[in-house]
Amino acid sequence: MTPSSATASEPSFHHADFEFAQDLLDGDAQAWARFDAELKPAIVSRLLRQGATEADADEVLGLVMEKLWAGKKLAAYTGSGPLQGFVRTMASNVWLEYLRKHRRMIPASSLHQADEEAEGGTGILDRLTEAEAVAPQETPLAELLRDALLHALAQVDAEALLIMRLSLLQDIKQRDLCAVWGGCHEGTISRKKQEALESIRDQTLAYLAEREPTLQITWQDLLEACGDGAEAILGPSY
């Protein structure tokens, strides 16, 4: 993820991306051409990197497009993060939904075949779509990431966690933390924070690999989903 010029706690308004989204919603041909040239490949690339086959990626891309327009997800985009991060995070979320519905890991091509073979045209994908309409699960990715992070926090060294909490949640200054920790050097506090982050990263990714082995999410993907792309899975932050 490219670091934003704004702080993580103060998301900036991405005016150009917001305008781009409005142009797409207005059916502007140039905007659509740009979507096809930039955002579709970004979505497909993300899906392939997260373990999707080409057939899966095509299928999931279709579902993402449906959610963006028919599901009005694009209309809900407020510009609080880059549009590319928004759609990539959406794609990861839809990919996770897709994986959970196809837990037996049937390739999408086989599903198409099964669809065609089903009697009366009610194939697997049709039935899955019906199930989704009955029991929508809006943010399985957000829930998975929350569970993974809470699991990771429970494993972090208590002192490193305390320093992290005092610094980030209570806004205690680094020099004051040094005084509390017996007048230690600021580097000691920084190292503790670094240790905490590395532990959280390793434990989170291990949890995700165990819970969703096919969803090959990277730390950068996770940061994007929790940060720049969070609106796609959490809604606006106001």
């Binding site: 993580a8 957000a142 929350r146 924070k193 982050l197 959280i200 959490l234």
Partner: peptide
């Protein structure tokens, strides 16, 4: 890995998804 930046992202996410972490 930018420690402060990354931790701030995770903190903000958890503040929304798991506010109990603040205690």
């Amino acid at each position: 890995m930018n420690t402060e930046h990354d931790l701030a992202i995770l903190t903000q996410f958890l503040r929304r998804m798991a506010p109990e972490i603040e205690g």
